[in-house]
Amino acid sequence: MVNAEMSQATLPNLTGIVDANRRTDLVMAGIGISVLIVAMSLLAAVVIDLIVGGWPRLINPDFYLNFPSRHPLQAGIVSAWVGTILVMLVTAGIAIPLGVGAGVYLEEYAARNWITDFIEINVSNLAGVPSIIYGLLALGLFIHGFGLGETILTAGLVLALLILPVIIVSTREAIRGIPLDLREAAYGLGADKWQTVRLYVLPAARSGILTGTIVGLARAIGEAAPVITIGALTFIAFLPPSPIQSSPPFINFEWLESPFTIMPIQMFNWVSRPQAEFHINAAAAGVILMLMTLAMNGIAIWLRYHLRRQIR
């Protein structure tokens, strides 16, 4: 009797709770999805705004082949995209060996002690240092200290230091993902540390490291702040000397010491002008810049998910 009364009293109540729970869950999922939609529509708005804004220049081939100019309709991005490519060459050449080397050292060589701990905290902190501070480092040390000048070399160097933590961290993650038994197999055959790393660990971690490197370089391509800080000129009406020449030794390094501009700086320069005509150029440059970074990020994301599927 008592039981029956109780269940009669509580049962409807329970269903009420379950229903209410279901409602809150629905609301919660709804909020999550709407945040997602807002974020994605921002991305879409950025892309559409740029394309619409820059369309008249985007469809004009001169835009890609002309130098910057005081006349908005004649201004182009040739010095900017060439500069971006050359600066990225320097950045990759410095950041990849240093970053991968540091990652390998921390993961495979370093003893677990306070020095390693210190380096680790340091890398993690460097990853969070604002990019403009790297610009101050370059201004104070590379330009006024070492006298490297406002050159492609300086810009490549500062961007390399900026993305160093990204490459170190992704190298470490890639190496950590390699199963222990692969390493034991190599050591079991008598390989020393360097043989194990060179012959087995690095090849197995190759794609992971590549992914991190691409993400890092994509970040470097879009960075303007540290390069503005070194005082990079924004009106460059010439191209740096070609890295390849027809006479021996076929390669020259004069371009490293050349003044330059790069895509994000060219865009910043145009967007800061009061005349609306230049804003069209800015938008068009932005589309090209975004194409570069989104393509690189897309490749990296594809690589990562492709990899994960392979491992599974």
Partner: peptide, 16 residues
């Protein structure tokens, strides 16, 4: 030592 003494592990662990 490991150059002179070979080892085979519990789980097969060929190199990729």
């Amino acid at each position: 030592v490991r150059l002179r003494i070979g080892m085979v592990f519990q789980k097969p662990n060929p190199f990729p």
